[in-house]
């Protein structure tokens, strides 16, 4: 599953990336969302707009459009434990 399919409020673990679109892989990492990191989708914007992703370990909050979110592969955090 990707960040774009995940439900709001779920704790997720980033496990990889889909084929980077427009080199978004390095850009997403630059803002603090790395493979292996836990993230939470805090809220979603209206009109199939972006999602707000929080990285609890650093406190970073990033707004991410659907296209970007599709590039981030995640799994439920509890399954990884």
């Amino acid at each position: 599953m990707t960040l774009a399919d995940a439900a709001v409020g779920r704790r997720l673990k980033v496990i990889g990336r889909n084929t980077p679109r427009h080199g978004s892989g390095a850009t997403i990492a630059g803002l603090g969302i790395h493979v292996g990191e836990e993230v939470i989708i805090v809220r979603a914007a209206p009109f199939s707009g972006p999602i707000l992703v929080e990285v609890p370990s650093s406190g970073v909050r990033v707004a991410m459009g659907r296209g970007m979110a599709e590039a981030v592969v995640v799994e439920p955090a509890d399954a990884a434990a």
Partner: peptide
């Protein structure tokens, strides 16, 4: 041209 989606810090 093409455009990447939104990716922005929310302070």
């Amino acid at each position: 041209g093409t455009a990447p989606g939104l990716l922005m810090d929310i302070p």
